[in-house]
Amino acid sequence: MSILLKKHKDISGFIFINVTRLLFLMLILMLAFILIKIIVEGFSVISWEFISSEPKNNMTEGGIFPAIFGTVAVTLLMILFALPLGIFSAIYLNEYAKDSVFTRIIRTAVNNLAGVPSIVFGLFGLGFFILFVGKNLDEVLQTGLLFGQPALIWASSTLAVLVLPIIIVSTLEALNSVPKSHRDASYGLGATKWQTIKNVVLPQARPGILTGTILAISRGAGETAPVLFLGAAFFLPNLPIVDLCFGDYCIPMINPGEQFMYLAYHIFILATQSSNPTKTMPLQYGSTLVLITLTFLLNITAIIFRYRFRKILGRL
């Protein structure tokens, strides 16, 4: 019986666990350092005026409202383009397309697309949306130079292409995780394929799709490189807004043809292109804090939706 009392020494296991622990700790510390630094330095800058006014005095003073507005506008339009396209592509790939060499190539391509550097997407957006789509629209519609120039809509479209793989991949996973037995139940009750997808598969896939949306928002709102070519302005005090009027009644709408300021790009400008980088340091911290908070708020909205859907599904 003595062998039962002898403790087994698992040295490699011990080392492995502690190395992982250490690495985890390092990661948390780095993240905490960045966040704390930004919050501490940025918090004192943030005021209602900082959030609600435009930059002043050669961008060394004043607020960042146009950049906040631009970021929200671009990100919202991006999701508007990317979400339906991504979801329907994923539904087609997962539910309708037969497994063939062709669909496998598409799947691989989608996965690889997620790894392409964002500057490449920027160049793609410039080449495709502005120089090809825009210029040709101008020529066909005889509009001079209306579509063929950097604008909010092209920035959103390009970011939509950039986040499309994220949405497709997470939707595919969500669709795949719906149990076959639930589809069988639906077919057994006489549902057609589309009824099954609409009533059984999609409701269960919603939390997963929203996870993809959350990731996409964070990615899109934080990108700098793609918007560089596509309409992000150095300094633009007026907002990309147009009044849509029905008789006397007007509603302000996002103007997709305007250029815009973008938070991530604004921070880059303040840090590298400013006439006085030291003086703008607090503004940089403030803007960064606002960008992080904004992404967080957009995320929270999606997370609240996901929580609700999960609750409906009884998964909580």
């Binding site: 037995s181 639906s186 549902a191």
Partner: peptide
């Protein structure tokens, strides 16, 4: 086939109720 399946109910080995 959809009409056929409406005339034939099916109960499976493991309960496959929808999460509703």
């Amino acid at each position: 086939v959809v009409n056929l399946r409406k005339r034939i109910g099916m109960v499976f080995q493991k309960s496959n109720l929808f999460p509703k």
